[in-house]
Nucleic acid binder design. Structure first.
Lengths: 358, 358
DNA sequence: CCTGTCCGCTCATACGTATGAGCACGAACG
DNA sequence: CGTTCGTGCTCATACGTATGAGCGGACAGG
């Protein structure tokens, strides 16, 4: 086995050109594959290709990027460090989809890590420098997304896609989001189909788009189906505990009692079920409960819940981003990904009704 | 809140220069911070800085890279997809260290994903293109590292560091590795200190550098301490089971019986202990056992083992790589990271000796 | 013989930045 | 008044590629 001597400098197109006895642009044309447009005959193409092989020429992606504006690099910016969080399913599933799809369409990922500010939170701009520029575009994710930075990014004309809906004052940005609104509506529809008429919404009390989406879906479906909404007025108590006064009201009479609730999260559904148990009531016998988020299948209670298509969201984020790159003028619009409603053991027909039993 | 209109084109230094009434090079000098060398007075510096702010100029990293060869991007190439494997502690810990250190020294990571070949394995070169070139250098990791590719990379003069020792025919590459050799020697020393004189080595029978390192450390320490090496001759049986004939030999007589073994891995130590139990012998009462790899602290048996400093290896890989970039002529050498010996419950003084008891 | 067309390329330039060399000007000095 | 020196910049170029425009020659048609 012979050792190739370490090269002083990487060969470039002009080196290839000299060896093949043509001009640099001819080499570029052969590499770019537009030999027809440039009318390079096959014999010359072969000669150039041999020179390429002989010198071991590889194109310089940086120069390409400078010239064409593309380098098949897609950025991933998280507002927290990626790898510690990669453990958690939340992030990981998105990243899986992102990596998978990027690989399929032959792009590399740039993981932006260096944007950590002194306050521990990450920012896109630091020292006025947008590091994202090395990539053709970026996928941003992370709950802590700074709206001002998103606005500036958009104003700067940088192509990016945000995972999770994020409303930014002054602009619209492209988001890829689980369709919580439809999912919440579907769950209400299911409850209505089963015969529930008085239902409530256990809100997380978090002022964030994804929760607003759920709420909107709930409310529109409740209105459409003509149900009675008997949700608690305020936010949950510590630990997600429901308001006792509210419980008294909606569980008091037997005739007009609440028979089902929809909860933003498992940590709300759980204390609610416990409060019921303390009053001698059971889920789902007395009250049905559905959760508007994904719940681990090995959880203690097999909640009726959603299955958030995180992986698919990641994949679609990549596709949407590349679409943005290919057609820069595209009007921004949210991309919705359907959530599957998972049937568990916490929703049934209300007592005294004959629900379908299978 | 006013919406900044979406810009047609990003401003460049020449735009700033025009606004400030200077030349592009003056702007570059101010940005580069070498205002002293270029003798730009403070007043002009301020004027330029204001122009920068007004236009919202941000440097173009691609152009910088083309000019200087650096863009503060470090590649991470794994020979398998990163994120699915990020779950496992093996990869994750390296990546944690890599990300952490990269962030500290203000570099971003490029995750190479698109290098998947049709055979499912990833390669650095595909279609003759070295994608790694977008980054200043790269950290490679993954058991499946292709030696031929490593050789070519080295021959091409691409700066990279490999995590885990990898011998490449024809060249030497820079590796960052846990110091298995010293760790194995330390463990043998500890056994010798406790009074063991006849010990054996349970080899995984895997022909790979890290195992060779362990073996070397073991053998040199055994020789240095004048111990009797009674290791089995062949590789382990299915499931890691020790050779019964060998067991008969080394456990037969009582006087010259083997009193300790060192195992490459837990999956070797475990069947060995079971084989002992089947003969009415116990660990560590009759035979001490040490494992030359990291063992989860919540494992059934608290083995005496190593703690592989994966995180530190990741961090050091980054530092080594950057060192390579700053001083291109540096001769390559392995970078060793010390392994901590973890005392468990499977090593003690041999029976009939008075070991230190605390 | 003149004109037009097609072939096989090349020329020139732009992308945005960094940097060694050097220029014009004013002040100080002899 | 001539020379030197320091100041405050600018000029020119290189990094490696892609691409619209164009040029010289061959050949065909009139």
């Amino acid at each position: 086995m012979t050792t190739t001597p370490r090269r002083a400098r990487a060969p470039r197109q002009s080196d290839v050109a000299r060896l093949a006895g043509v001009s640099q642009s001819a080499v570029s044309r052969v590499i770019g594959g537009d030999t027809d447009a440039a009318r390079i005959p096959e014999a010359t193409v072969r000669r150039i290709q041999e020179a390429i092989k002989e010198l071991g020429y590889v194109p310089n992606p940086t120069a390409r990027k400078l010239r064409t504006g593309r380098n098949r690099l897609l950025g991933v910016h998280t507002f927290e460090a990626v790898f510690p969080r990669a453990r958690e399913d939340f992030y990981l599933e998105f990243l899986l989809g992102i990596e998978e799809r990027a690989e399929e369409i032959d792009h590399d990922l740039v993981l932006f890590t260096s944007t950590g500010g002194t306050d521990g939170r990450r920012r896109v701009y630091r020292d006025g420098v947008n590091r994202l520029n090395v990539a053709d575009g970026a996928v941003l994710l992370g709950v802590a997304a700074d709206r001002a930075e998103l606005a500036r990014l958009e104003a700067d004309g940088y192509p990016f896609v945000h995972i999770g809906r994020r409303e930014v004052p002054g602009t619209r940005i492209t988001c890829v989001v689980p369709d919580y609104e439809s999912a919440a509506a579907a769950i209400v529809d299911r409850l209505a189909d089963l015969g529930h008429t008085r239902i409530g919404y256990l809100s997380a009390g978090i002022d964030e788009e994804s929760y607003a989406d759920r709420r909107r879906g709930y409310e529109s479906a409740v209105a459409r189906r003509g149900l009675h909404d008997v949700s608690p007025a305020g936010p949950p108590g510590p630990g997600g505990a429901p308001d006792p006064a509210w419980l008294d009201t909606v569980l008091g009479g037997t005739a007009d009692r609440l028979t089902a609730v929809v909860a933003d999260a498992e940590w709300l559904a759980h204390p609610f079920a416990e409060a019921l148990a303390a009053r001698g009531l059971a889920v789902p016998r007395d009250v049905s409960v559905a959760v508007l988020e994904g719940v681990a299948p090995d959880a203690a209670v097999r909640w009726d819940c959603l299955q958030i298509p995180r992986r698919e969201v990641g994949r679609l984020a990549i596709d949407t981003l590349v679409g943005l790159l290919d057609e820069p003028g595209t009007p921004v619009a949210d991309v919705l990904v359907e959530c599957v409603v998972v049937e568990g053991e916490t929703v049934t027909a209300p007592a005294g009704t004959q629900g379908r039993t299978e």
